[in-house]
Simulated scan of single mutants.
Amino acid sequence: MSGPLSDIRVIETGTLLAGPFCGQLLGDHGAEIIKLEDPGRGDPMRQWGRERPYGKSLWWPVVARNKMSVTCNLRTERGQELVRELVAQADVLVENFRPGTLERWGLGFEELAAVNPRLVMVRVTGYGQSGPYAPRAGFGSIGEAMGGIRHITGEPDRPPSRAGISLGDALAGTMAAYGAVMALHARERTGAGQVVDSALYEAVLAYMESLLPEWEIGGYQRERTGPVLPNVAPSNVYPTADGAAVLIAANQDTVFRRLTEVMDRPDLAEDPKYATHGARGAHQSELDDIVTTWTAGHEAQALLAALHRAGVPAGKTFTASDMLTDPHFAAREAIVRLPHPDFGEIPMQNVVPKLSATPGGVRWAGPELGAHNDEVYGGLLGLGAEQLEKLTADGVI
Rank of each mutant, 00 (worst) to 15 (best):
P230V: 04
S198G: 01
R189N: 03
P230D: 12
M208W: 08
L211K: 02
V262F: 03
I217T: 12
M182Q: 09
R222C: 06
G164C: 06
V196D: 05
A186V: 08
A245K: 13
T153Y: 01
D253M: 03
A249W: 00
Q252V: 14
A192M: 12
M182E: 12
L184T: 07
E209K: 01
A250E: 13
D169F: 03
A241W: 01
R257Q: 15
E155A: 13
G168R: 01
R258Y: 01
P160W: 00
T190P: 03
T153F: 01
V181G: 05
V262E: 11
A170M: 14
N236T: 05
V255S: 00
E209F: 08
A241M: 05
F256A: 11
P156T: 11
I152N: 08
E261M: 05
H185M: 12
Q252E: 15
N236W: 07
P156K: 14
Y238P: 03
G154N: 10
P234G: 03
G226I: 06
S161F: 02
V196Q: 07
I217L: 15
R222H: 13
E144Q: 10
V262C: 02
P234T: 07
A170L: 15
P230R: 13
R222G: 08
M182V: 11
L211V: 12
V204W: 00
V232P: 01
D242G: 07
T240W: 07
E144A: 12
T174G: 09
A233T: 05
Q252M: 12
L205Y: 12
S161K: 01
G226Y: 04
P156W: 14
R224T: 08
N236Q: 14
A241C: 06
E144S: 09
N236Y: 13
G140L: 03
S198M: 08
A176W: 11
L211P: 00
Y178S: 05
T225A: 15
